[in-house]
Simulated scan of single mutants.
Amino acid sequence: MLFPLGILGVASLGLAGWSAYVGRKAEEMVPPDGQFAEVPGARLHYVDTGPRDAPAIVMVHGLMGQLRNFSHSLSEWLAADHRVILVDRPGWGHSSIAGPRPGIGTQAAMIAALIEQLELDKPLLVGHSLGGAVALALALDRPELVRGLALIAPLSQPVSTVPKVFAGLLAPQPLRPAIAWLIAVPAGTMSGAKVAQAVFAPDPVPADFATRGGGALSLRPKSYMAGSFEIRIAAAEMAALAARYASFRVPVAILYGREDQVLDPQLNGEKTAAEIPGATLELIAGGHMLPITHADETEAWLRRVLADDAQATGGALTDTV
């Protein structure tokens, strides 16, 4: 009896050691790009680019992502004439948390604290995928802080069935650490290419996504635990958010790829646009990772959103439309 237990213990230590090694290597491949801000409950890693006196844009990434999802192909061009702030969500990328793991609403409060700390004047808040849910929560709770929302393939409704590509994150809380350290990282090193293909489909995965796009950071135990937590709490938090959509006080624009194979454009795009007063929806060809795979179209759409908002408010938000 003791011998099999000993073998199991040695194997577990070996797998945990391998997971730690892979996590360190991922952080070497994708080191911090910016600076850090202390907000209640978190230490947020963010990149602040573009002219400081230009209109501000804050960009919030999605599940299993980090801020390089935006800097890979999109943010550089926006930063030519806007102040662009990219944020690693609490517990993701190089941002850390203190205390209980934050849900969508609590993460929104942390991003709001960063906006206040940086003294941003009503930025356009951009959210991709689950980052769209965080943006929606922030605008509902603190509408005075933002000019409007630009949501790219957002999670905006309660989803009854977890996307197949993320089904492996459905670990019960008591098993989550063991799976994160003993199974998730070794399995991820073998299946990572297929998972990326499923997330990007039908668009191709860029060859440099692991580094320039920050994809390598998903291969860490902490990323699995954060992703598993968020998948588990998303349906309940999204139901509470969706119930408040009729009370929206800021403009909301939504962009979706018609061929998105992660989130349903009809549910999370059309239904949400119909429920939020004045919201708009634009559909383009493409899958879920539009900021990377369709950066030109995404930038053009963002500039139209900025121009429409400038016209509505009577202010000049951008010189390029």
Rank of each mutant, 00 (worst) to 15 (best):
51 P>N: 01
58 V>Y: 06
241 L>Q: 09
78 L>G: 01
217 L>V: 03
99 G>R: 11
144 E>P: 05
291 P>I: 01
244 R>Q: 14
56 A>Y: 08
181 W>F: 07
306 L>E: 04
132 G>C: 12
211 T>N: 05
161 T>K: 14
160 S>I: 10
30 V>M: 12
24 R>N: 13
184 A>Y: 13
289 M>K: 00
24 R>F: 11
262 V>C: 03
143 P>Q: 09
165 V>S: 07
266 Q>L: 10
57 I>E: 04
166 F>P: 01
10 V>I: 15
147 R>K: 03
318 T>H: 06
165 V>K: 04
307 A>W: 14
224 Y>D: 00
3 F>D: 12
131 G>S: 04
294 H>D: 03
268 N>H: 13
21 Y>Q: 10
108 A>D: 04
31 P>D: 11
99 G>E: 08
309 D>S: 09
37 A>I: 02
98 A>K: 07
9 G>A: 15
135 A>E: 10
153 A>I: 00
44 L>S: 08
310 A>V: 00
287 G>M: 06
284 I>M: 02
297 E>I: 00
66 Q>W: 05
265 P>D: 01
86 L>F: 02
153 A>G: 05
62 G>N: 00
13 L>P: 05
80 A>P: 00
145 L>G: 13
312 A>R: 15
304 R>Y: 06
68 R>C: 02
142 R>S: 13
177 P>T: 12
147 R>P: 10
268 N>W: 03
169 L>D: 06
27 E>G: 01
210 A>V: 07
71 S>C: 06
245 Y>K: 00
276 I>V: 14
21 Y>C: 08
93 G>L: 09
243 A>I: 04
294 H>F: 05
309 D>C: 05
133 A>W: 11
196 A>E: 10
68 R>Q: 14
181 W>L: 06
134 V>F: 09
280 T>L: 03
156 S>T: 07
48 D>H: 10
77 W>E: 14
128 H>G: 02
85 I>L: 15
210 A>G: 09
290 L>K: 02
39 V>Y: 08
154 P>H: 06
193 A>F: 06
124 L>T: 04
274 A>H: 06
67 L>A: 07
251 P>Y: 08
238 M>L: 12
39 V>A: 11
182 L>D: 01
285 A>D: 14
11 A>I: 14
302 L>T: 01
202 P>S: 13
220 R>P: 07
320 T>V: 14
35 Q>G: 05
74 L>P: 06
115 I>K: 08
167 A>I: 07
144 E>C: 09
320 T>F: 08
88 D>W: 10
237 E>L: 06
230 E>V: 02
276 I>T: 07
104 I>L: 12
17 G>T: 12
110 M>F: 09
233 I>S: 01
281 L>H: 12
63 L>A: 14
